[in-house]
Every structure is written in structure tokens, then in C-alpha cells.
Design a protein around this nucleic acid. Structure first.
Lengths: 239, 239
DNA sequence: GACCTTATGACAACACCGTTGACCTGTTAA
DNA sequence: TTAACAGGTCAACGGTGTTGTCATAAGGTC
């Protein structure tokens, strides 16, 4: 098969679909994001997307090689949106906390795309910009180069991996998600103290805590530890 | 529909399939794990699993309500394997570090299953055992109940999510994985200092660091922060 | 050993999925 | 005016999870 996808710049003959819609890469990505937001991650299929656009499903293959391609385009758009709304203040810890929370929220808003894009290095514009900015925050705070890189790496991977983890949970069909909270309440909440003393003693906290993401806690722990390291380093600058 | 699944204890008539296989929950889970490892997560479908077992796909619905049920059984088996080889020593920090590293290694050993199972609560035997044990370590160390639960949650999610992240990377086709390291070396390693000063200054560290998992660093940061919290709590026991 | 109940495996069908090769037609450039 | 072809459409392929129905062999009872 010769490639059916044409690069956007080369597009010229904008013929509307039978239902009168003029397709474009942007319109498809936008519609896909809307579909995910409105009807859950399961709602995103080539056929449903085609229906939502008012076009034959196969038309989409003129714009994306396959579904994965579409996902990456969506992911790229998401990175851009996250970064675009972030303004560093100069307080390194507050800035990183804000950025981490934004990345996490972005992932939750678009679970399907987040899961796919979390473990890929794109090497594209927005990603490079993010690396440069975060490294700048850390070095500006006084972390030596090697340490800055180590903490950058842990920070980013933690944001991405928790984002993907929580996104995957959010992308579960509604029934499965409700089953999960039911498990915590019904199963862990009722274990007898003689066989499971620690669960029984903390059951109340467990049921309350496990329904939320642990990312904020994990993020604060990471930043706290980094801050401690920083004061140690400042104590002996030549370390 | 009356439920087609029968609890294992009640099973009595072990009739072999047409191809002579005697089905059981254990056999199904084992075969599913083997299938995932050998042919990738995509290879796991009810129909393929049936074929691999020598049974009609619909037979599996006598053992699992739906695919989701099966995934939970697989996840629990993985937890069990990790837990079985772990021996706590009484040093809470060392024990949690060891357990975290084991969970991470377990995920890497079964990348595709890890990705699928990381975000599910199984509510099954091994998982309950793991929760009880970790909570015991934390409470034994002196963390008050609410704090123990918070740290338990962050610790477990961190191990699972980094496990899934690194597993997903490891499960990439070889070509894609090599492309990723190439991006770091060729793209990030060569950015000019005037446009990207921070990346340029740390390029050497970046290229070296990004090829490894950041989990050990992230884990140590989390445990360090927890230790600090613990000494604070001990300072004022009634907090 | 014969008989009955019923658990359990098998079959066929349903509605969906991603993807592709062939076709048709409106837009555009010459 | 016309010819080329980008881009939308159609139909089909082989896959998916799931379920209603049926057949049969296992196990208990006599």
C-alpha cells in the first residue's frame, strides 16, 4: 500500500464530507479530546470518532496512520496545554509542586492519552522546553548539576507514572471503578482484628484514604527530601 | 442470566475439554501469564486464551465473570510471587526499601502483565496479605495510624507506578527503545548553550542518568522524607 | 449397575472493533 | 475546458468480548 496519509502542509483539496464537515488534523484531535471528556475513555474508537465528526471512519486514515498516531498527536497537544498555563514564581519548591500537580491533572483529564504517552520520549519542542525549564528551576535553587539531574529525573518520572497510574484507574469502566471502592469498604473494612490486626486498626483511614490519589503525598515527600538534601549541600558547598 | 461462575470450592465435576484438558482457575491464570510473557499483552484475549488452553472461549466464563476478573486473578498471582520471597528483618526502612525493589524487579520480570495489573485493586488473598504486612512494618516503626496509611499508600503506588512505567519502556520493541536513547544522546546532548543553557550544562549527566530507572532514587527520597517525619513525630508523641 | 440431576463444556450468534483495497467525485491547476 | 488526483465512501476481513442454548458426562443414590 502506498501511504494514504498526506502531510498537513500539502493538503489542498478540502472537500467536505457527505454531512458537510471539512476535516482537518486539528478538528479530529479536538473532537477526540471532547469525546474522551464527555463519554469516557471507552467512547474513543475510530468508528465512534467518525460518527461524531460526521465522516466515514476510514476517512481518518487520510490523517493518521493508525490509532496510535492519533493518540500521540493528542498527547502532544496535552503537553503543550500543561506547559502553556504554568508560570514559575522563583520559589523552586512551590514551582515544582505546581508543575507536578498540573501534569497529574492533565493526565487525569485525558486518561487514555496519558497512559500511552507516559513512557515515551518524544524529543519534540514542548518536551525539550519542559526539560530546560525544570533543570533551570533546580539549578537556580542551588542543586549541583549531577544532583539536579537525579532529582529532575525522579520528579518527572514520578509525575508521569502517577499520572498514568491514576489515569488508568480513571479510565476504567464505571462499573469496575465502583467495584474498587466497594472492595475497600466491604472487604478491607471488615477484616477481623485477630487475623489482620494492622488492617483492622487502620480500616477507617484506609477506606477514606484509598479513594484519593496518593500523588500529592508522594510529591510532597519527594520535595521534602530534596529540600533536606539542599540544606546539607549548602552546609558544605564543595561536596 | 443466573451467574455462570461457580466458586472454586464448589467445583466437583472435573470434566475434560474436547481436547482433553482439565480446566482450573490456576491453570487458566498460569496460561494467561505465559501467553502475555511470550506474545505480548495484546496476545491476551479470551479467544486466544481458550485456544492456548485447548478449550472453547466461552468455557472460561465458568471460571471468571469477565475479562476483568481474570486480570485481577493474574495481578494477585504476581503479588503473591513477589511477597513469597521477601523476609522482613525488623529495620523498617531497609525492609521497605527491599520490598520496593522487589516489586519493581517483579514488574520488570513480567513487563506486560505488570502494565495491565498495576492499577487494579484485587481484594484477593495475596494483596490483603501485602497490605497487612506493610502496614505492620510502618506501625511497628512508630508511625501513627493515619500517617502509616498515607505513607503506605504513597509507597505502594510509587512501586506500582514506577514498575509499570519502566516495564512499559522495557516492553517496547527493540528498535523503539534504541531510538529513545538515541534521542537523548543526539538531540539533548547537542543543544546549544545560548538557547538551552541548563540542558547544555548538564548534558553529560543527562545522557548517563536517563538510561537507568529513576525508581531507586525516588524510593530513597520517599523513605528519607518518611524518616524525617518519624523523628518529628517522636519529638512530640501526642501530635 | 442403572438412573437422575446438573455442572460444565461446546456451539452459534450478536454487536462491536481497527484496518484496508477499490471506487467515485469534486477541486484545482494548467 | 479539461485532466489529474486528493480525499471521502463503501464493503469487506478478521478480530474482539459476551451470552443464550444445548448436549453430555460426572457423581450421588438406590
Amino acid at each position: 500500500m502506498t501511504d494514504r496519509v498526506v502531510r498537513p502542509a500539502a493538503r489542498q483539496r478540502r472537500r467536505p464530507t457527505k454531512q458537510g464537515v471539512v476535516l482537518s488534523e486539528e478538528l479530529i484531535v479536538e473532537t477526540a479530546l471532547r469525546l474522551i471528556e464527555e463519554h469516557g475513555a471507552d467512547a474513543l474508537s475510530v468508528r465512534r470518532l467518525g460518527r461524531a465528526l460526521g465522516a466515514d471512519p476510514s476517512s481518518l486514515y487520510r490523517y493518521f496512520r493508525h490509532t496510535d498516531d492519533l493518540m500521540l498527536a493528542i498527547a502532544d497537544e496535552l503537553i503543550g496545554r500543561t506547559l502553556r498555563t504554568w508560570r514559575p514564581t522563583g520559589d523552586w519548591r512551590a514551582d515544582l509542586r505546581d508543575l507536578g500537580m498540573r501534569m497529574h491533572a492533565g493526565a487525569l483529564a485525558h486518561p487514555r492519552a496519558a497512559v500511552l504517552s507516559s513512557y515515551r520520549v518524544t524529543g519534540r519542542g514542548y518536551e525539550i522546553q519542559a526539560v530546560e525549564t525544570i533543570l533551570g528551576v533546580l539549578r537556580g535553587a542551588g542543586f549541583p548539576d549531577a544532583e539536579a539531574v537525579r532529582i529532575y529525573h525522579a520528579f518527572v518520572d514520578q509525575a508521569l507514572s502517577f499520572g498514568a497510574l491514576d489515569a488508568a484507574g480513571a479510565a476504567l469502566p464505571r462499573a469496575a471503578r465502583e467495584a474498587e471502592t466497594a472492595v475497600w469498604r466491604a472487604k478491607y473494612g471488615r477484616l477481623p482484628a485477630d487475623t489482620h490486626p494492622h488492617i483492622a486498626a487502620t480500616a477507617r483511614h484506609l477506606v477514606a484514604d484509598m479513594r484519593h490519589s496518593s500523588y500529592p503525598v508522594a510529591l510532597d515527600l519527594l520535595l521534602s527530601a530534596a529540600e533536606v538534601r539542599l540544606t546539607e549541600i549548602r552546609g558544605r558547598p564543595e561536596a
